[in-house]
């Protein structure tokens, strides 16, 4: 399964990749992008099976990305996990309304992410 990580923080992208490696996901199945716009290019050129996405990013933020992705026919049932610092309840509701499948509040712990990933890998 191809997995796309979208976060403007290089450190967070590295942390998430290391967590995926623990789940035996190969490097060649991991893609990453620093913003929603770059993510859309990857989504259009590959068949992504899981999307891990931050909210606050330049160019195109995660919430807007999720709304666009849900309009793409092949991605209507794509599992999307939002991993963000946005911790308010109204943010979680807004993200769910936009179409995210799951929501993790940063700072991320490997244990939390691995537990969530079990359902999708």
């Amino acid at each position: 399964m191809k997995i796309l990580i979208v976060d403007d923080s290089l450190i967070i992208r590295k942390v998430l990749k290391n967590i995926l490696k623990e789940k035996k996901v190969s490097e060649s199945d991991m893609f990453d992008a620093p913003d929603g716009q770059a993510a859309l290019e990857i989504l259009n050129s590959h068949d992504i099976g899981l999307l891990l996405v931050d909210w606050n990013m330049p160019k195109l933020n995660g919430l807007e990305l999720v709304k666009i992705v849900r309009k793409i026919e092949k991605y209507q049932s794509l599992p999307i996990i939002m991993i963000t610092s946005e911790a308010a309840k109204y943010n979680v509701l807004e993200a769910v309304k936009a179409g995210v499948s799951d929501y993790i509040i940063k700072p991320v712990s490997g244990v939390t992410v691995l537990q969530k990933l079990k359902q999708y890998l």
């Binding site: 403007d8 308010a88 940063k106």
Partner: peptide, 23 residues
């Protein structure tokens, strides 16, 4: 990333103010 997470997490204790944070 640290200041982003601090601001985002602090919103939890200030829900009534409907805060929006910048990059």
């Amino acid at each position: 990333e640290i200041v982003n997470i601090i601001a985002g997490n602090a919103k939890q204790g200030l829900e009534q103010y409907k805060l929006v944070i910048s990059l």
